[in-house]
Nucleic acid binder design. Structure first.
Length: 123
DNA sequence: CCCTGATTCGC
DNA sequence: GCGAATCAGG
């Protein structure tokens, strides 16, 4: 199955929406592993504290001094009252969310809320 | 014991 | 690059 921009956007949407991996998997019609792998490749931020940085014995040299660099998050800026609609390609370097003002605590702004409810029947 | 999340390997 | 398998944590 080829991953279309829509699929990536949906993945990012559900991911940032806080949907469980199996749920996203069911929505996209794939397994959670695929979702995890895709999300990982996409560079999506990790959500769960279920990380195991050190549990898995990884033979890596200790030649990595803590870099003082503080990279900005690829997403975020997401906040209550801001539209979470993904703009353009999720893989784009300037990928961003709408961040437009939403209704009270809506996830999307009025404009994207309409699109979000579309059952994706573009043809 | 079951479920979710992350990382790595193979195709 | 995608998918599946494996491991760890809760």
């Amino acid at each position: 199955m080829a991953w279309n921009p829509e699929r990536n956007a949906l993945l990012a949407k559900l991911w940032s929406d806080g949907s469980p991996t199996p749920s996203i998997a069911a929505t996209l019609g794939t397994t959670k592993n695929a979702i995890l792998g895709k999300a990982y490749r996409l560079g999506l931020p990790r959500r769960a504290p279920s990380s195991r940085p050190g549990s898995a014995p990884r033979p890596v040299c200790s030649v990595s001094p803590a870099p003082p660099e503080k990279p900005l998050h690829p997403v975020l800026g997401l906040r209550q009252g801001l539209c979470r609609w993904p703009i353009g390609d999720v893989i784009a370097p300037d990928f961003r969310f709408c961040l437009d003002g939403t209704a009270d605590r809506a996830v999307y702004c009025a404009h994207h809320a309409r699109i979000a409810t579309q059952p994706s029947r573009s043809r």
